[in-house]
Amino acid sequence: MHLRRTATLALGLLAVATLAACTSAPAAAPSATSADETTAGPRVAISYEGGILVLDGESLETLADLDAEEFTRLNAAGDGSHVMVTMSEGFQLLDTGAAGGTDPQLTDLVFPADTPGHVVRHAGNTVLYADGTSDTTVIRTADLADLGTELPAFETIPGVEAHHGVSVVLEDGTFLTTVGNADGRTGIVARDAEGTEIAANADCPGVHGEGTAEGEAVVFGCENGALLYTDGEIVKLSAPDQPYGRMGNAYVSETSPLVVGDYKNDPDAEGYLLSHVALIDTVAQTLEVVALPEGVEYTFRDVARGPGDLAYILASDGAIHVLDPATGDITDTFPVIDAWEGPLEWQDPHPAIVVTGDIAYVTEPAANAVHAVDLTTGEVVASTTLDVAPNEVAVATGR
């Protein structure tokens, strides 16, 4: 049985003190548009080398330019206003001001983590994973909505052996987490709310990523297919390519049983561009692989789910290609940016897409640009040119 411990006020204060000792507390720089002149609504956080911009979600005007570390990853916290920023000390909270139309700020609040990694939002929880310890931090998402100067209460589920992993907590308290160590990652384990093991599966080399579909069907990617957890059981879904058919990330909608995964079948292929997708039906418990049209390639940052539970792929030809997960067909194509080449390293700035409602936000690092696209029409409804090359992107919905 795993042990759980709840953070105390002292730990929250320690996290703040540690941050203050190691980094400066950046404040918002003068912005193109004062946040006082805006109303609550979506805000877009954009990381760049050494900083984070916060943009108004409608006009794309810059509301704040905040100092940060050289490379940071951004994930929406789930409360509509905050973004988790992966910093040296852990997950630092960026308040975009989306919920109240206030000035964005990179707060002093940090959830401590050794090598912060994946962030998962599900069932009213925001779940943080520390690769350096395999500890999982669980926060009630609603507690992030009205923060003062202290961290909200949170629960830490101690890990076993450190690895690059991910965890998710389901509605009934079931805890799913990856299994691995310094030598590799092998599978997942499921435990009930009391910590008793429900199920486990070790047939998932290189396990990576997580996605929760309709009915709390949870998919984890493997280098030979995927694992599907549903109704207390783990099912292995084998890839058509063996021994190597890697699904690394799951793109899901919680109102659809269909999952789209990135897919690679050549372990020796150079670069990060991919030309196939995995399609998983969590009800039929099937996995198939679909080749995309010639010239349509993408990276892990370039797939999102959106209107109609369809998948939207920002490809290297500069267009958003609309994919029907039920058939694997491309049903529409929206030209948005210039054609681009894949990155030399995955951390390098390259185009990305995130979706909220009917709007996709698309980055174009080669042009220092960000675009808002209406996915119901394909129309680019707003664009902006920045002084920096955008890298990671996250959206706070404002609700």
Score class of each variant (00 low, 15 high):
D103L: 15
D103P: 10
Q105N: 03
Q105R: 11
L106A: 10
T107S: 14
T107P: 03
D108T: 15
V110A: 10
F111W: 06
P112S: 08
A113D: 00
A113V: 02
D114C: 03
G117P: 01
G117Q: 10
G117S: 11
V119N: 04
V119F: 09
V120E: 14
V120P: 00
V120A: 08
V120C: 02
R121N: 14
H122F: 13
G124H: 03
N125G: 08
T126R: 08
T126W: 15
V127S: 07
Y129E: 02
A130T: 03
A130K: 02
A130M: 02
G132N: 00
G132T: 05
S134A: 14
S134Y: 01
T136M: 04
T136D: 01
V138L: 06
I139W: 05
R140Q: 12
T141D: 00
A142N: 06
A142R: 13
A145C: 02
L147W: 05
T149W: 12
E150Y: 10
E150F: 14
L151R: 03
P152S: 01
F154M: 08
F154V: 05
T156P: 01
T156M: 08
T156R: 07
V160E: 15
E161K: 13
A162Q: 00
A162K: 01
A162R: 01
H164I: 15
G165Q: 09
G165S: 08
V166H: 14
S167V: 10
S167F: 12
V168A: 13
V169D: 01
L170P: 03
L170D: 04
L170Y: 09
E171Y: 05
D172Y: 09
D172F: 12
D172G: 11
G173W: 03
T174A: 14
T174Y: 11
L176T: 05
L176C: 04
L176W: 06
V179G: 05
V179N: 15
G180V: 11
N181T: 03
N181Y: 01
A182M: 12
A182C: 08
D183A: 15
D183S: 15
G184S: 06
R185V: 12
R185K: 14
T186G: 03
G187Y: 01
I188K: 05
V189M: 07
A190L: 08
D192L: 04
D192H: 05
E194C: 04
E194I: 01
T196C: 07
E197S: 12
I198D: 02
A199E: 13
A200L: 12
A200N: 12
A200Q: 11
A200G: 11
N201S: 14
A202H: 06
D203T: 04
C204G: 06
C204H: 06
G206V: 07
V207C: 07
H208Q: 12
H208Y: 15
H208K: 08
G209M: 04
E210Q: 15
E210V: 15
E210F: 14
T212Y: 02
A213G: 10
A213T: 06
A213D: 10
E214M: 13
G215E: 08
E216Y: 08
A217C: 05
A217N: 09
V218R: 03
V218K: 07
V219I: 15
V219H: 13
V219K: 09
C222Y: 01
E223P: 03
E223N: 13
